[in-house]
Design a protein around this nucleic acid. Structure first.
Length: 451
RNA sequence: GAGGUAGUAGCUCAGUUGGUUAGAGCGUCGGAUUGUGGCUCCGAAGGUCGGGGGUUCGAGCCCCCUCUAUCUCCCCA
């Protein structure tokens, strides 16, 4: 009979332990930072009624959504992001939750687009959002979380680019281009990718007059310190109430970030970023790695004051951002920031004498009882081969005991890094044995802490 | 979805103008007189040359299709 070729779907991937350990580490970092700011975890189904998911992001997102009719005849879709499910979740449960409600959600999402470097059809997002407040405090907090998150992951060469949709809307209003907003924003968004000429061409194609185009470039070309940018924008868009509000809010955010100790170089007011998702209404964020700008934004989001309005008459404004775990990981890999291969456990116990298996399990249980990880080798191979395995997998210590040692209640603690071994009694001396082991592992403090 | 580039062992690659049984390094597994690893030496396994079709006496090499990766458009984490 012919074999089935083992393979995975385009844009979908397997993860081997070395990579999965990195992913888990990243997720743990995200959780830790989110919880530090008072966000709590939730989860929602991968599958939703199609009507819940469609028409919320943009036409493009609808096109990229995986959807099908289930066995019960229901039109269902796989979630495209975690924000739209949150909107449904909030509309459904907000009476039990109360506001403001802060949650984080780390889970896979699916997009049927063409895979590229750092872009997959299945990938994990680490979202955090605040529902139920329009206060500028949550705008500021969102920026602070993004900043702290990246630092804690171990990245310092990054920049958070900030804009406000109200400013863009104000600009478009003042230029009488409201009906062409999508194409204008889309063109503007590509500024640092295709340059001014490219954007100019695209604007011309969209039927934008050269006077309007000039004003757009004048607007996008504003540079300087945060305060300079804001005051220039403010004089340019004085006539627009909407834009002025947006500028005022950005100025509060910028001041707060400085006060919180965020270096000015880490964030930038960039009026060219627009973001494709239609639901954003206020501040928007995009985070790029300075060493690898081409991979795109690794953490972005913004304020969406009307999202839950599609599901409830209650006013449920929100703001949040999402760390693209898989994209960030692809970037870290590209930058060669992967740490050494992971160690399964600290302590290795060779199956030296198969007749003494029970002793090895007793030893392993003793070691694990104080939180030190231990692995018993599953096959009675020659000791040299077992140690070779231990060496290759990076174990720190081996506990070697044959009949000779076991008969005397002893075990050899061998430091695999220095190749030095000491014999210690372990039967009726678990404290002394564990202390010796901990000291070799360099964990003296850990034992006293756990006791 | 459209276009450009690529696809040879687990990994990185070699493979002459199409010409017999497709190679190397690393990795994996085994061994070097039966209780102690990282070095060395020896050996083995592992490839329908991404898949399918075609041209030819003969295809890893040429042509078409397809799949996958990567890039651009598009969009985004």
């Amino acid at each position: 009979m012919s074999l089935i070729e083992p393979r995975t779907l385009k844009g979908f991937r397997d993860f081997l332990p070395a990579k999965m350990v990195q992913r888990e580490k990243l997720m743990e970092t995200a959780k830790r930072v989110y919880r530090r700011y008072g966000f709590l975890p939730i989860d929602t189904p991968a599958l939703e009624y199609l009507e819940i998911l469609t028409g919320k992001g943009s036409e493009e997102t609808d096109r990229q959504m995986y959807h099908f009719v289930d066995a019960g005849g229901r039109a269902v879709g796989m979630r495209f992001d975690l924000t739209v499910p949150l909107a449904r979740f909030a509309a459904q449960h907000i009476n039990e939750l109360g506001t403001p409600f802060k949650r984080y959600h780390i889970a896979p999402v699916w997009r049927g687009e063409n895979p590229q470097d750092g872009r997959f059809r299945e990938f994990v997002q680490c979202d955090f959002d605040t529902i139920g407040t329009t206060g500028v405090v949550s705008d500021i907090e969102t920026a602070l979380v993004i900043h702290e998150l990246l630092l804690e992951i171990g990245i310092d060469q990054f920049r958070i680019r900030i804009n406000n949709r109200q400013i863009l809307s104000g600009l478009l209003e003042s230029l009488d281009l409201k009906d062409k907003s999508t194409s204008v924003l889309r063109a503007l968004d590509k500024l640092d990718k295709v340059g001014p000429e490219g954007v100019g061409k695209e604007l011309a194609q969209a039927g934008i007059s050269s006077e309007q185009s000039d004003k757009i470039f004048q607007f996008a070309g504003v540079q300087g310190t945060h305060d300079e940018v804001l005051s220039k924008l403010s004089s340019m868009l004085r006539s627009s109430e909407l834009a002025s509000q947006g500028i005022e809010r950005l100025s509060i955010v910028a001041g707060a970030l400085r006060a919180a100790g965020v270096p000015a170089s880490r964030f930038e007011i960039d009026v060219s970023i627009a973001r494709g998702l239609d639901y954003y209404t206020g501040i928007i964020f995009e985070t790029t790695l300075l060493e690898l700008p081409r991979i795109g934004s690794v953490c972005s989001g913004g304020r969406y004051d009307n999202l839950a309005g599609l599901f409830t008459k209650q006013q449920l404004p929100g703001i949040g951002a999402s760390l693209g775990l898989d994209r960030l990981l692809a970037a870290l890999e590209k930058l060669d920031r992967f740490q050494e291969s992971p160690r399964a456990a600290d302590v290795f116990i060779p199956l030296f004498d198969p007749d003494r298996m029970n002793d090895y399990f007793a030893l392993a249980a003793l070691v694990r009882s104080v939180g030190i990880s231990a692995e018993v080798y599953p096959e009675p191979k020659k000791l040299g081969q077992q140690l070779k395995y231990a060496d290759q997998r990076g174990f720190l210590v081996a506990l070697i005991a044959g009949a000779r040692e076991l008969d005397q209640g002893l075990v050899q603690i061998k430091d695999l890094r220095t190749q030095t071994a000491t014999e210690v009694a372990w039967k009726n001396n678990s404290e002394g044995f564990l202390a010796a082991l901990a000291s070799i592992l360099g964990l003296q403090n850990m034992l006293s802490q756990s006791n």
